[in-house]
C-alpha cells in the first residue's frame, strides 16, 4: 500500500447526499477480476449520458475543478460492500474523501487502499463545499500525523478522527495482511482454546 503522510491540493465538490456505491461504480462494471482500471467508470451514469458523452453539468467533467480531494455530501459510500468503489476513486486519482458521514464498509475499504476518509461536522462541510464552488482553486491541507485538515481561506483548522492502528498503517504503507500473517501462531492458540 502507498504511504499517506500529508497532502495539499484543490478539491472537487460533489454536494450530493447518500452517494451509494452503485453510483460510485455501477454493478455492470464489477465483472473485471483485476483491481485496476475502474477510474474511467467512476460515477459512470452521472458522468456520461447514454451515448457515452460527458455530461457538462457534472462536476468531474468541469475543468474548473481539479485535485486529489473529493468533498462529498452526507453519508458517502452507503450500500454495497464492493471495494471496487474504493478502487475506482483511487484509480481516478483521489487520495482523500471528505464528508460529514461515511458508511462503515466504505470507510474500511478506503483505508485498506490508502485513501483517507475525513469526517467533518455538517456545518464545516457545507462551508467548504460552498467555498470550492465559488473558488475552485482553494487549497486544502491535510496532515495525517497531527490529524488536521486546514482550509486557510476559511480559517478552518479541524482535527479529525482516525483509529491509531489504521493511522500507523497509512503513515507507513502497511496493510492488515502482513500483521495478521505474523500472528498466525496466536490465532492457532485461540483456535485450540476455543474449538477443541
Amino acid at each position: 500500500m502507498e504511504k499517506f503522510v500529508k497532502l495539499t491540493s484543490n478539491a472537487v465538490p460533489l454536494a450530493i447526499e447518500n452517494i451509494d456505491t452503485d453510483q460510485i461504480i455501477p454493478a455492470r462494471f464489477l465483472k473485471s477480476t483485476d483491481r485496476e482500471g475502474f477510474g474511467k467508470n467512476l460515477f459512470r451514469d452521472w458522468r456520461y449520458d447514454k451515448d457515452d458523452k460527458p455530461k457538462s453539468d457534472f462536476n468531474l467533467n468541469n475543468n474548473k475543478y481539479s485535485g486529489s480531494i473529493l468533498v462529498a455530501g452526507d453519508n458517502f459510500g452507503c450500500g454495497s460492500s464492493r471495494e471496487h468503489a474504493a478502487w475506482a476513486i483511487k484509480d481516478y486519482g483521489f487520495k482523500v474523501v471528505v464528508s460529514s458521514f461515511f458508511a462503515d464498509i466504505f470507510k474500511g475499504n478506503a483505508l485498506n487502499n490508502g485513501i483517507l476518509p475525513i469526517q467533518l461536522d455538517a456545518e464545516k462541510l457545507k462551508l467548504i463545499l460552498e467555498l470550492i464552488e465559488k473558488e475552485p482553486k482553494t487549497n486544502i491541507e491535510i496532515e495525517l500525523e497531527e490529524q488536521v485538515i486546514e482550509v486557510k481561506s476559511l480559517n478552518i483548522k479541524e482535527s479529525f478522527y482516525i483509529d491509531a492502528y489504521k493511522k500507523t498503517c497509512l503513515l507507513n504503507g502497511y496493510d492488515d495482511i502482513d500483521f495478521l500473517v505474523n500472528i498466525r501462531k496466536e490465532i492457532e492458540e485461540f483456535e485450540k482454546n476455543t474449538y477443541i
Binding site: 464492493r82 471495494e83 475499504n109 487502499n113 492502528y165 492488515d176 495482511i177
Partner: peptide, 22 residues
Amino acid sequence: FGIGTSQVAQVFASQCIITEKP
C-alpha cells in the same frame, strides 16, 4: 456482516479481520 475484498484476502490469510467493535 459484509466486508471488502481486502478483508476477504485477510480472512483467507488468517481466518481473522482487524476491525473496531461496533
